[in-house]
Simulated scan of single mutants.
Amino acid sequence: MSAPVVPAPEPLRRLHLTVVPALHPALDGPAVPLVDPATPPPRPPHRPGPRPGPPGVRRVPVDPFGPAWSVRADLPDPRAAGRTLFTTALEALAGRRPLSQVQRLTTPGVHAALVRGRRPAWCTSGTAPLLLGPVHVCEPVDGVAEVSAVARRGGRAHAVAARLEGVDGRWRCTALSIG
Rank of each mutant, 00 (worst) to 15 (best):
P41A: 06
P42E: 11
P44Y: 00
P48C: 06
P50D: 00
P50C: 01
R51P: 04
P52Y: 03
G53E: 11
P54S: 05
P55Q: 01
G56T: 01
V57L: 15
V57N: 01
V57F: 03
V60E: 11
P61D: 08
P64M: 02
F65G: 14
P67I: 12
W69R: 10
V71C: 12
V71Q: 12
V71S: 15
A73P: 12
D74Y: 10
L75W: 03
P76G: 08
D77E: 12
D77Q: 03
P78W: 11
P78Q: 14
L85M: 06
F86W: 07
T88K: 09
A89I: 07
L90K: 03
L90R: 00
E91S: 13
E91G: 05
E91Q: 11
A92C: 07
A92P: 06
L93I: 10
L93H: 02
A94K: 00
A94M: 00
G95T: 02
R96W: 11
R97G: 00
P98C: 10
P98W: 03
P98G: 10
L99H: 09
R104A: 11
T107K: 09
T107E: 06
P108N: 04
P108S: 00
A113N: 06
V115Q: 09
R119N: 07
A121C: 08
A121F: 00
W122P: 06
W122D: 06
S125D: 09
G126P: 15
T127K: 10
T127C: 03
A128W: 07
A128E: 13
L130Y: 04
L131V: 06
L132E: 12
G133L: 12
V137C: 13
C138M: 13
